[in-house]
C-alpha cells in the first residue's frame, strides 16, 4: 500500500519536474531567438525580473541591481527592443544558452520555486562573451499552464565590471 502511494507521488513529482523543465527550456529558446512577444507572454501580471549586483542576497529596494523590473518595466524593456533602434541590439546578439541543474526547491499552492544554472554564449559586434548564472524562478500555475512570477538571475561575477547586458538574460 505504502509502496503504491510512493510510486504515485514519485510519478507526480516526475510529471511536475518535466513540466517545469519544458517551461524553462522554452523560456531559454524564446530568449535565444529574441522572440520578444512570446517571452513577455510568459510573465504573470505581477512579474518581477531581477538581476542583482554586488552579491546575491542584496535588497533590491535599497541597493543597485543591474535589472529590477516590475511588470510594467518589463514591458518597456520589450517595447524598446522592438523599436529596432535599441542600438546595442541592432544587430542582435547571437545567443545559445545551456540550462541545467534544474531543481524544484519547494511548492506551495499554485507556486513552485525552482533553481537552475545557465551558461550563455553571446556573440555580438564587440566579440564573444560567456555569461554564467545561477537562476531562481517562481513559477505559478495559471489556468493549468505555468507562468513566470519572478525570475532572479544571479550572474556569478556580479560584483565585477561586466559588459553591456542588453539581451534577455
Amino acid at each position: 500500500m505504502n509502496a503504491q502511494i510512493d510510486a504515485a507521488a514519485v510519478a507526480a513529482r516526475e510529471g511536475l519536474h518535466r513540466l517545469v523543465e519544458q517551461f524553462l527550456f522554452k523560456e531559454a529558446r524564446l530568449q535565444d531567438t529574441h522572440a520578444y512577444d512570446e517571452w513577455e507572454a510568459l510573465w504573470t501580471d505581477d512579474g518581477i525580473y531581477w538581476v542583482p549586483a554586488n552579491g546575491h542576497d542584496t535588497d533590491p529596494e535599497r541597493t543597485m541591481s543591474f535589472i529590477y523590473d516590475n511588470r510594467s518595466r518589463i514591458g518597456i524593456r520589450i517595447d524598446q527592443l522592438k523599436t529596432g533602434r535599441r542600438h546595442t541590439q541592432t544587430p542582435r546578439s547571437e545567443l545559445a544558452r545551456v540550462l541545467s541543474n534544474i531543481e524544484i526547491v519547494s511548492q506551495s499552492g499554485d507556486e513552485i520555486e525552482v533553481r537552475a544554472n545557465a551558461v550563455v554564449f553571446e556573440d555580438n559586434l564587440r566579440g564573444e562573451t560567456v555569461w554564467a548564472t545561477r537562476n531562481e524562478y517562481r513559477l505559478r500555475l495559471v489556468d493549468g499552464a505555468l507562468k513566470m512570477a519572478r525570475k532572479k538571475v544571479g550572474l556569478v561575477n556580479n560584483h565585477k565590471p561586466i559588459f553591456t547586458l542588453s539581451f534577455l538574460v
Binding site: V51, R73, Q80, I162
Partner: peptide
C-alpha cells in the same frame, strides 16, 4: 537609475 544606466540600462547600454 536602475532603469536607465548600467550594463542593462535603457540609456547607457546604447
Amino acid at each position: 537609475t536602475m532603469g536607465s544606466v548600467g550594463p542593462a540600462g535603457f540609456l547607457l547600454a546604447d
